[in-house]
Design a binder for these strands. Structure first.
Lengths: 367, 367
DNA sequence: ATTAGCACTCATCGCCCGAGAGTGCTAACA
DNA sequence: TGTTAGCACTCTCGGGCGATGAGTGCTAAT
């Protein structure tokens, strides 16, 4: 491709990203310092259209980038755009401060993405095997109640207020806690814990009611698959002129209600390995309703072979430069934070587990 | 107010809620079994308009309810509407299952509200006093690290992985935990805890590094006020015809970005005590951008003097009957779940347990 | 190879007008 | 006196029409 064609293409896309209006030869000649006349540009534009990089909404309108045009732009022309610097440290701090556990980090990441890019943000968390229980603690609340805290292998916490029988002395409570902790340690959350707990009823016979509560709760937890998908910033879509058409916006948002589809979306751009961001443009998303959108995604990892993906969905006209930067930044910050806060588990402890080999072993070179 | 006028008003509002179109006398006479002619209805409508219950978008359109009209409808006419039954038990279960802690319950409640009402849902958690620390627990992770868990008065949990010095025996760790717990109990989170912890350095002199970590962390937490507001279901607004005007929808959503405003919104309808739902209609919200909206709110409470409010924001044309029911339902379910009382209602424990029958105890004052 | 000139296309906007829905008023009616 | 039929009137909505103007493609000159 002709260097001047490149310049023209870049100018058109830059302009279109800025204005959301089809770009005409005249405007282009005037605004950007190309030093050639509109007529020349028209010729180039005709060529570029021929080659498939541009499209015309109708005969006498300016040109608009095609998917192929955006693709070329993202792959080859992006380097020269202006660079909106964002503070890596600030992102890391926000994530770390809000980070009570991995879901918090992920949810917060989605929020950050949405705010920073003014687009819709997605976050998913995959490969989370059932969590094993590491320990159980009990905190007395009042004579009637106590808070049961279950700590997972991954550092996650779950708590449950339990009703105590009348006058249960504090040391007795401690004994119960210890018993529960011993019994449940290593159990998968929800899974086979029932059998183990049954045993408890011998030890803690008189507190059967309490044991039953715990049992029921664990059962409930089992039924509730952990949240795995987050969507944030839906309202940002409305800021984009292409979504001033309400039905179109609705269609996109409605599509995002289907978890399966979001999964698929975040799965699609398969080109990524560590750190790189992937961009899917228009039809490349293979979702009818989103053929006017682009998606920028990146991988993050957490210790314990938890892996997830974050993404930013916006109009094809999005500011790829900034969005890609932000996505990369947030993803890598997540990985850092998760490694720092939750690196409870060295590969060794997992390999003790029979039959559970984690093949993914990303270098979590932590801070 | 004339009984027939009531019927006419009710018919008009019902119709308008259903169709979102101004209601004409002819339509009304035909559809609803009022048994009078359009002309008569016109007279009634003119009267009702005079009295301020109806408005005319323009001279030759049908009538539309005014704020006052909706108010009368909500206060006096609602009883006779059809009753969309929702399962209290189902709601309680969803909340309980997803409930790892109070924030989860609240967030989940917002999601539920949004789904069930097809409107925008708000949830806030007040009692904005800094959370006091109830207890501290420590869970050893590996020889080098431990997980520090801080339990708030309100049952909230925060955790932090701390690095331990070399070779710290388990019982030593327990001693540290007990010391921390004793020292920090009752401290506001972050606030004056620094002074208290200083004292610890005497007790735990050799673990200064650990104490420093805790100190730094508490400082960070202080800077990060806990999340207190949730908004969900923004996209539902687009389903309502009144928000097919994108700028209007944007205005509402933009207004909701301001925490302060949302606080104010949820604060406004001051008429509530326990259980009752409050309705604010149009201008009653005192927010310019939302004068086409209504808000239905209710209070929920959690042990530890945490109090919050949930609400549903929709077009004035919302189905008050259903929405009010749902809001009431979710709020009271939240209160139940947060109190931990729901545990006693598990079918399993009830059948096996003839002795201690669960007493219904809706209002609870122990903290 | 570039550019100026020109004819042509086509979306957009303002305008007018007819159709239709709905009203208020008046007079007739039970 | 309350209700109803009839009627003139108002106002929105949608379609058709022409002017406008941005933008193009082509051709010929540089």
């Amino acid at each position: 491709m002709d260097p001047r064609k490149q310049k023209v293409l870049q100018a058109i896309i830059d302009d279109y990203i800025r204005t959301a209006e089809p770009v005409g030869s005249r405007t282009l000649a005037r605004a950007h310092g190309l030093g050639v006349s509109p007529a020349t540009i028209r010729n180039e534009m005709a060529d570029l259209e021929q080659m498939g990089y541009l499209e015309q909404p109708h005969t006498s309108a300016g040109r608009v980038p095609s998917d192929k045009g955006y693709r070329y732009y993202v792959d080859s022309l992006l380097a020269s755009a202006t660079d909106a610097e964002v503070s890596r440290e600030a992102v890391r701090r926000v994530l770390a401060i809000k980070a009570r556990m991995i879901e918090d980090v992920t949810r917060q990441a989605a929020r950050l993405l949405a705010e920073m890019t003014d687009c819709l943000a997605l976050a998913s968390q995959a490969g989370a095997q059932p969590v094993r229980i590491r320990a159980v603690r009990v905190v007395p609340l009042d004579p009637q109640r106590a808070l049961l805290i279950v700590v997972g292998e991954d550092g996650s916490l779950r708590s449950k207020t339990v009703q105590l029988g009348p006058d249960l002395p504090a040391d007795e409570l401690e004994r119960i806690a210890a018993a529960l902790s011993g019994r449940l340690e290593g159990a998968t959350f929800g899974g086979s814990s029932l059998g183990r707990l049954r045993g408890l009823q011998g030890e803690l016979g008189q507190f059967r009611q309490l044991v039953d509560q715990v049992l029921a709760w664990l059962g409930e937890q089992q039924q509730a698959p952990p949240e795995r998908l987050w969507v944030d910033g839906a309202r940002n879509l409305l800021n984009q002129p292409e979504f001033h058409d309400v039905p179109k916006a609705q269609a996109v948002l409605a599509a995002l209600e289907h978890e399966q589809l979001v999964d698929q979306l975040l799965g699609v751009p398969g080109t990524v390995e560590g750190g790189a961001v992937a961009v899917a443009i228009g039809r490349e998303l293979h979702v009818q309703e989103m053929e006017d959108c682009s998606l920028v995604t990146a991988l993050y990892v957490a210790p314990g072979s938890v892996v997830g993906r974050i993404g930013v969905l916006g109009p094809k006209r999005m500011n790829y430069r900034t969005v890609m930067k932000v996505v990369e930044l947030v993803a890598s910050s997540m990985t850092t934070v998760l490694a720092g806060e939750d690196a409870l588990q060295e590969p060794g402890s997992q390999s003790k587990e029979p039959g559970s080999e984690s093949k993914e072993d990303p270098a979590d070179g932590g801070a």
